[in-house]
Computed example of a mutant assay.
Amino acid sequence: MLKERTISRERDMSQVANFYKERFGCAHSHIAKEINKATSLIIVIPIFNEPDVISTLESLKACHLPNDPVEVILVINNSENGKTETIKQNELTRQEIIAWLKKNKTPKLTFNLMLENKLPAKHAGVGLARKIGMDEALYRLGKIGKNGIIACLDADCRVDSNYLETISGLYGQGEFTSGHLYFEHPLEEEEANIREGIINYELGLRYYVQALKFIQYPYAYHTIGSCMITSAKTYALSGGMNRRKAGEDFYFLHKIFPLGGHKTFNKTCVYPSPRISDRVPFGTGRAMGKWMDMVNACKKSDKMPEYEYYALQSFLDLGKFIAAVPCFWKYADQEIEKIMADLPRS
C-alpha cells in the first residue's frame, strides 16, 4: 500500500511539472546530467556581473550537509545587448566557477552551471534569471517525482552553517508550501557610513513588516529574494517566477501567500551583502547608493543625513481600509460608497 502511494505521488509531481512546462515554463530543460533520486532540495543562484561569487560557494560548501543530497543551480546571465564590461565579468566568473568546481567536489552537494548570456533585452534581468533556474529545478524534481524544495539565494550572500540542514529538514515534515528565512545584513567589516546606512535600511524593512502585522494585513511577510523557499508543487501551481527586472520576489511571493501555509523560519540565517549596486532599479544596492549620496551631500553642510521611511499614519489609514474590506462582499453599492467616503483620504 505504501509503495502504491509513493508511485502515485511520483506520477502526480511529474504531471504537475509537465503541465507547468507546457503552460508557463521555459521551452526546454538545460541540464543534461541526471539528478540523484534522493535529492529533495535545489538552490537557485542568479549571477550577473558578480566579482565574488566564490565566497558564496565557499559558504555553501562550509555548511553541515543534510542526509539527502543537495543541488545548486548557478545561472550566469546577461542581456543580448549587454555591456562589454559585464560580458567580460560574466566570462571571468564562469572560468572562476569552473576552476573552483574542479577543486571542490562533494558527492552530496553538486553544482550545475548554466550560461544564459543572450537573454532577450526586453526581459533580461534578475526575474528571468531566477525563472530559468527555478523552472529547471522544478523539471529536475519532476523527473524523480518529488515535491522537493526550491530555495533562492543571491550571488553576494553568505549563509549559516546549518542553512542546508534547516531547509532540507522541511522536506517530508507535513505539507510544506513556502517560507522565508531569517536574514541579517553583515556589519562587522563595513565602513562606518555603510554600516549606519544598512542598519537604517534593515530597520526600515522590519518596521514595514511589523506595521503591516499591526494593522492585521493578512500577508505581512518579508519579501527578500535571497531568502525565499517554496515547494516544487507550490511553485508550479502559482504559475512560477515572473520576468520582472526588479521586485520579482515581491510579486512572486504575493502570488504564493494566498495559497496558504507560508511561514517564517528563524533557525538559520542568510546574510545579504550591504554593498552599493546599480544592477536593479531598486532594492538594497540602490538604497545604499542613495544613502551614500546623502552622506556625501551632508559633508558639505556638516549635517547628518536622515533616513526617511513611511509614516506610521499611512499604515493606520491602510488598516481602516483593510478592516472595511469584508463589508464589500455583504453590502449594496450605495452602502459601500458610504463606507468608502468615511475612509481616510490619504
Rank of each mutant, 00 (worst) to 15 (best):
T234S: 07
Y217H: 11
S273G: 09
S238C: 13
K213S: 09
Y201D: 06
M228I: 15
A192W: 10
Y221V: 09
Y221K: 01
I256L: 06
D278T: 08
G197V: 09
L203Q: 14
P272D: 13
G247S: 10
Y271L: 09
A232M: 15
L203S: 11
G225C: 12
V270R: 02
E248A: 12
F257S: 05
H262P: 03
G240F: 11
H254P: 04
I198Y: 09
L237A: 03
H262D: 03
E248M: 03
T284A: 01
F282I: 02
Q216H: 11
A236F: 07
N193S: 11
V270K: 00
L205R: 04
F257N: 10
S277I: 13
E202P: 10
L203I: 11
Y235T: 03
V209G: 12
F214C: 10
S273R: 04
K267G: 04
L253W: 06
I276K: 08
A236I: 13
T264V: 09
G261T: 12
A192Q: 13
Q210T: 09
A192N: 08
S273Q: 09
L237N: 07
C227E: 11
A192I: 14
S231C: 04
I199D: 09
Y221H: 07
F282E: 06
G239D: 12
R279Y: 09
Y251M: 13
Y271A: 08
G204P: 08
L212T: 11
N242S: 12
N193L: 05
R244K: 08
Q210K: 14
G197E: 10
R275F: 00
R275E: 15
Y251R: 07
G204Q: 08
M228A: 05
I229L: 08
V209K: 00
E196L: 10
V270G: 05
N266W: 00
S226F: 05
Q216S: 14
D278W: 01
K267H: 05
T234W: 06
